[in-house]
Computed example of a mutant assay.
Amino acid sequence: MATREAVENCINRCEQAVQSAREQFAEGNRQENYGYYDFSEPLTELEEAYNELCKLAISANSQQRERLHRMRLVIQQLQNEMILQEHEPTM
């Protein structure tokens, strides 16, 4: 079973990755007029956080799994937004 501390640490790291990615995403959107903005670094951080969540969810109880699942949805949504923005043609 996953400890409460392990789940809290994982959620905190994920929240930090999400916050960092959102800041870089906002910066990329501001610089959109200047050309292509590479989101590969924040996407890599999000993917690492996502993988950590998945590993921890295996040994979590149902309540912990629910918290981890909600965080996983936040990460996936942000990843999708960044990927779509990254590949959107500029006119």
Rank of each mutant, 00 (worst) to 15 (best):
L73I: 05
E41S: 04
S20R: 03
N61K: 05
V7P: 02
G35R: 05
S20D: 13
N29Q: 15
S59L: 08
E52G: 00
C54E: 12
A2V: 03
Y34A: 08
L43F: 06
A2I: 05
Q64M: 12
N61W: 14
V18D: 02
Q31C: 06
R67D: 15
M82I: 06
Q79Y: 05
T44V: 11
A2R: 06
C14K: 01
S40V: 05
R22V: 02
P42K: 00
E66N: 03
N51P: 01
E45I: 00
M1L: 13
V18A: 05
E48C: 02
E81K: 07
Q63T: 12
Q63P: 00
N29C: 10
Y34F: 14
R67G: 01
I58R: 10
T44N: 13
A57N: 02
E8C: 01
E47A: 13
Q16A: 04
L56S: 03
G35S: 05
E47M: 10
S20Y: 13
A17K: 05
F39M: 12
A26N: 08
N33P: 02
H87P: 00
E66C: 03
R70G: 08
N51H: 12
E15P: 00
S59Y: 07
Q85D: 04
H69Y: 15
E32T: 05
P42M: 11
M71D: 00
N80Y: 13
T3A: 07
V18E: 07
E66Y: 09
M82T: 10
R22M: 07
L78P: 03
R30F: 10
E88S: 09
Q64W: 11
H69D: 10
E15L: 10
E5V: 02
M1N: 09
Q63C: 04
Y36L: 00
S20I: 04
R70N: 14
R30E: 14
E86P: 00
A49R: 09
N12I: 04
E23H: 06
A57W: 08
Y50A: 09
E5Q: 11
Y34C: 08
R72S: 14
N51C: 04
M1A: 10
E52H: 01
S40K: 04
R72H: 09
R72M: 11
T44Y: 14
S59E: 14
S20T: 02
C14M: 12
I83A: 03
D38T: 02
A2T: 12
R4M: 13
L56G: 00
Y50C: 07
M91D: 11
R4E: 14
K55I: 05
F25C: 02
S40G: 01
F25E: 03
Q76Y: 08
C14S: 14
L43N: 06
S62F: 15
T3S: 15
A21Y: 02
I83R: 02
E5C: 01
I83Y: 03
R30Y: 14
Y36W: 09
N29E: 15
Q16M: 09
E8Y: 07
T90W: 07
Q64H: 11
Q63K: 09
A49S: 15
R70T: 11
T44C: 14
R70D: 13
P42Y: 11
Q76G: 06
E88W: 04
